[in-house]
Write a protein that binds this DNA or RNA. Structure first.
Lengths: 262, 262
DNA sequence: ATGTGAAATATTGTATACCAAATGGCAGTC
DNA sequence: GACTGCCATTTGGTATACAATATTTCACAT
């Protein structure tokens, strides 16, 4: 594995020739930021399992940095809700209960509804044009069942729509919730790429036509369907885990310290 | 000023006698947390002005701790959106534009609307009872024009309603946005305590009666009115600042480094 | 075998010292 | 006044140390 430091150095060097003239300090990506990104990626893609312990010195060694950037990265991820820490016990990848997943999706439905409505209302020609070409490209990819490409287009659709609501708080929250939904899929998120695309295309059409209420309705329904699917997957995984006794490794190395209990 | 360390030690000692039997490590409040709280308080109450620079070593000396906890506190506050940092330039108290205030309030309207609706739908007897006694106490305080007490009751009202929606993401976001709105008031937030109380009491009544739509409507309107008032205050402050040339100290010591500009 | 408790070990939270890179001013020069 | 070179400050990061806790081990009793 290439070290974080090498990656930072390289990105800095590349930036030197591609970016606008900004101060060189601003170009430099801090190790903390690099570690944060690396860890976040490992968590949302499932390489780090929920409940897994995150030891500072172990991570420091893994990334070839000192403990400070790691501590700071863990703090940042805690603020994002991806890791949970308890005092003197350290950090773990956050464990989300099914109940919490339901709450997450419930709110995401409402925020995507708002976001779609606002986007359709505020939409300008530039957005409509971008969406139109995105839809064309996506339909093409859908005909070819090009899932990889579709996944990328799905992401681009979300980025476009999020930014177009012209409300940075709403955008931030929607993105944050969406990321957490993706996290729940972990690896298996290509499966629904085509269905997802079709729903996205319908929403895009509604936005292009300025039909705010339809865009809102379709968005909410889209998230609801996605959410139902995610919850079904989770339940199934849970059932499987419960079914095969013994062979399953413990998902979280949770051991209650006897002395602390009353 | 009492040191942070003394405060931490005391809170730990007090907790020893008031809390449930948990491990002693969990009782210990980290210096990082203490510094974070202290800084957050200084920012939202306006003791630290927007745009003000936050030097690590200066803060470390002020709180009598090393730079590490301070760095981590600044990072945490950055995640909360209270401070802004640029690489190699350090942290400043975040400066919120009027445009951003409008976006903040716009989203807060929608989330408070959602929250009130959900709370009215999910409300159980315990909540109704708590709200009823809160309303009685508040009306009493309002008759006596006890602003100090009313402010506390207003805060309690929000806490009650936020928690009752049974959606931790919604609760978190609503609380976060509300805190930022309070921040904009800074010191002068007792002024509207009585009007605020009356609006809260009406919302409480709607929740008690299970009238979700009325609760939602009143909540949205309440935030809208509060927001209009905040924005008016800000505009006025802006006008005043613009009017009195020379005498006003620079609100942000922002100096563009000539060499970085094209 | 199984549980218990004390000792051994590991980890976190914090401090300190130190360094390189970058920024922010300032004095001198054109 | 605008540029230039220089220097003090500040940040981001490393390394090391250490006390307070947590976790694991392991001998021992049941």
């Amino acid at each position: 594995m290439r070290t974080i430091k090498a990656a930072v150095a390289e990105s800095t060097a590349v930036a030197q020739f591609t970016e606008q003239p900004v101060s060189v300090g601003a170009r430099h990506q801090s190790l903390q930021a690099a570690v944060t990104r690396s860890l976040r990626d490992a968590i949302v893609t499932g390489r780090l399992q929920p409940g897994e312990r995150l030891r500072e010195s172990q991570l420091a060694q893994m990334f070839q940095v000192s403990r400070n950037p790691v501590r700071e990265a863990l703090l940042a991820l805690q603020a994002e809700g991806l890791v949970a820490t308890s005092p003197r016990k350290g950090a773990r990848v956050r464990l989300i209960s099914e109940e919490e997943v339901a709450e997450l999706i419930e709110l995401r439905i409402e925020l995507e509804r708002l976001n779609a409505r606002k986007t359709a209302q505020h939409g300008d020609d530039k957005l409509r044009q971008a969406l139109t070409s995105l839809v064309d490209e996506g339909n093409e990819a859908a005909r070819g069942s090009n899932r990889e490409h579709l996944r990328e287009l799905n992401d681009r659709f979300h980025s476009l729509v999020e930014a177009a609501a012209h409300n940075r708080y709403l955008s931030d929250y929607v993105r944050s919730l969406r990321e957490k939904t993706l996290w729940l899929f972990a690896s298996a998120r290509d499966d629904r790429a085509i269905e997802t695309w079709n729903e996205h295309a319908a929403i895009a059409q509604a936005i292009i036509h300025g039909d705010a209420e339809l865009a809102a309705l379709l968005s909410a329904r889209h998230v609801k369907d996605t959410g139902d699917w995610v919850q079904a997957q989770l339940s199934e995984a849970e059932r499987k885990r419960a079914g095969s006794h013994g062979s399953t490794p413990p998902r979280r190395e949770q051991r209650v310290h006897r002395r602390t209990a009353p």
